[in-house]
């Protein structure tokens, strides 16, 4: 656990995350518009609330779309060994995870509409007690990895 893992996830992950963030950013935008509309109709509400909200919305937009996806992608790394899976992720808190192959119970790939648009899918690895994810791999690669892991995990499966 001294060196970081080698493999990176697909570069399109950044685009997919940006799109997700754009969609989420609609919510604060709507709230801001709502605040302005409310301030227009009710006298006791000040426009300042709307202005503060607008500033916050723009800030949220900048952070979640221009900054976070890139940093997140840069940090995300993984490596599959014959005996274990090694994952690194996290922007402020960097987490490195080791999952031994013989503890793996099942592997899934999954794909939502946004990931599908970019031809990506998420690999999910479950042990008896925990689940781990490698998000946004190229579809075929994810499928190959899934098969590879389940092949490796099949060896020497003792109880629990």
């Amino acid at each position: 656990m001294r060196e970081q893992p080698n493999e990176r996830i697909a570069t399109d992950a950044i685009k997919a995350w940006k799109l997700t963030a754009q969609l989420i950013a609609i919510i604060p935008l709507l709230i801001t518009i709502g605040a302005f509309v409310a301030a227009y109709f009710f006298d006791f509400l000040s426009y300042w609330i709307g202005i503060v909200l607008a500033v916050l919305t723009v800030l949220e937009w900048i952070i979640s779309i221009l900054i976070i996806p890139k940093l997140r992608w840069r940090r995300w790394r993984y490596q599959i060994y014959d005996q274990e899976i090694y994952i690194q992720h996290g922007i402020l808190i960097v987490t490195r995870t080791v999952v031994p192959m013989i503890r793996v119970q099942h592997v899934d790939t999954q794909q939502g509409p946004i990931l599908k648009k970019y031809g990506l899918s998420t690999l999910q690895i479950s042990t008896a007690a925990t689940t781990h994810e490698i998000p946004a791999l190229i579809e075929d690669e994810a499928a190959d990895l899934r098969d590879q892991i389940s092949e490796l995990a099949r060896v020497e499966q003792d109880d629990v």
Partner: peptide, 16 residues
């Protein structure tokens, strides 16, 4: 050893 399902090491900026 064989009962541990996975292992994580977590560090934030100050930790590092």
């Amino acid at each position: 050893h064989k009962r541990l399902q996975s292992l994580q090491k977590k560090q934030h900026i100050l930790h590092r």
